[in-house]
Computed example of a mutant assay.
Amino acid sequence: MTGISKERAIERTSYLAGEGWGDANVFPLTPDASFRSYARLERGEEKRMLMDAPPSHENLRAYLDVTSHLRSLGLRVADTFGVDEPNGFAMIEDMGDDTFTRLLNAGHDELSLYLLAVDVLKKLHTHDRALDLDLPPYDMVALLREVELFVDWFVPACRGSNVTPTEKQAYMDAWEKALERISLTRDALVLRDYHVDNLMITGSLGGVESCGLLDYQDALIGSRAYDLVSLVEDARRDVSPHVYEACVTRYSEGLSLQDQEKLRLDMALLGAQRHAKVAGIFIRLSKRDAKPIYLKHMPRVLRLMKKCLENDALQDVRATIDRMVPGYEEAIF
């Protein structure tokens, strides 16, 4: 249990003992960009996963509520065996090691995995009870708070000086104009981090029942385009053009031509929004949290953002960014 305070380690030990797993072997997993951490518990042939979600930084209740809801919709999520909500601990099912990322790195067929991920989204987005959960909307306030990370963190790191109030206002106004329609969209449960790191195969590769979901506790109600663009415009890996088009085509089956065109526009809007957010977050992780490992993905993020910004609906946003940080896509960190 390295990497945590002595007090937190004592709380963990107490929780495990209370759940009857005090004698288990504990193997911490590599931490991600959040404050949550996980450890694999092994006791003979039995396995569990310990989730450590410090209450000061993480919302365990949100995870539990969204988990229960997704399970009720027939989607594959980890079972929950024990919870200490006040202290931020949960004992959940160990669904194994077969994340899509690991499978892809091992040579698994890219197209089949991505199409399975699209099928999971389609099941979620077409379920008549998908929105029967009390969650905040992915509204203008949330969308703008995220793109603000770009001017607060990325721009200063890129050019060596903070943005002026006038620059920031022009940037935020441009985004508000571009996102006006989509900020009112409430047609999907948005999982928000839907990409290959957070998808896994549990059991044999088959239908959507075999696709395990991870990291969805920050879900909101918003646009169905968000998780689709998160999947196919991944900050952490290149997705081939063939797979990208196959995924959008698969998702678009049954949609009218008008809705297909709207989907692609919304993917550009939310793709640009997400990439701007991620660029800011990766700089913040490096400078504030001493996690520079994510900077290796920055060229991809900026390339994806620049591509999305080519859409005419984002011309004002593009112009403000080009004025603040001309040539930003070539930045090296």
Score class of each variant (00 low, 15 high):
R8P: 09
T13A: 08
Y15G: 02
L16E: 00
A17D: 03
A17Y: 00
A24L: 06
P28Y: 10
L29V: 09
D32N: 01
A33S: 07
F35K: 09
F35A: 09
R36K: 04
R40A: 02
R43G: 01
E45N: 14
R48W: 10
R48L: 13
R48F: 08
P54M: 04
P55E: 03
S56G: 11
S56I: 08
N59A: 06
R61P: 01
A62L: 02
A62W: 00
L64V: 01
H69K: 06
S72D: 11
R76Y: 02
V77N: 04
V77W: 06
T80E: 11
G82E: 04
G82T: 06
D84E: 12
E85W: 11
P86Y: 14
I92W: 07
I92D: 03
E93Q: 15
G96C: 10
T99C: 12
A106F: 00
H108Y: 12
H108R: 15
D109E: 14
Y114F: 15
L115Y: 01
L115S: 03
L116Y: 07
A117Q: 08
D119C: 07
V120T: 10
H127P: 05
R129V: 01
D134K: 13
L135R: 14
P136M: 09
D139S: 11
R145M: 02
V147T: 13
V147I: 12
L149S: 11
R159D: 07
R159W: 03
R159Y: 00
G160K: 07
E167G: 06
D173I: 11
A174Q: 03
K177P: 00
L179M: 12
L184E: 14
L184S: 13
T185M: 10
R186L: 03
A188I: 02
L191F: 06
Y194N: 09
H195L: 10
V196G: 03
D197M: 02
M200K: 02
T202W: 14
S204W: 00
C211S: 07
L213D: 04
D218F: 10
A219E: 07
I221L: 10
G222R: 04
A225S: 11
P241N: 02
C247Q: 05
V248D: 08
T249E: 13
S252E: 12
E253R: 14
G254W: 01
G254S: 05
L255R: 15
S256L: 07
D259S: 13
E261I: 08
K262D: 11
D266F: 01
M267I: 12
L269P: 02
A276W: 05
A276V: 04
R284G: 05
D289P: 00
A290H: 15
Y294G: 10
L302F: 03
L304S: 12
K306P: 01
L309N: 03
A313I: 08
Q315S: 15
R318A: 14
A319Y: 03
I321V: 15
M324G: 04
M324A: 13
V325T: 15
V325R: 03
P326N: 11
P326L: 12
E329R: 09
F333I: 08
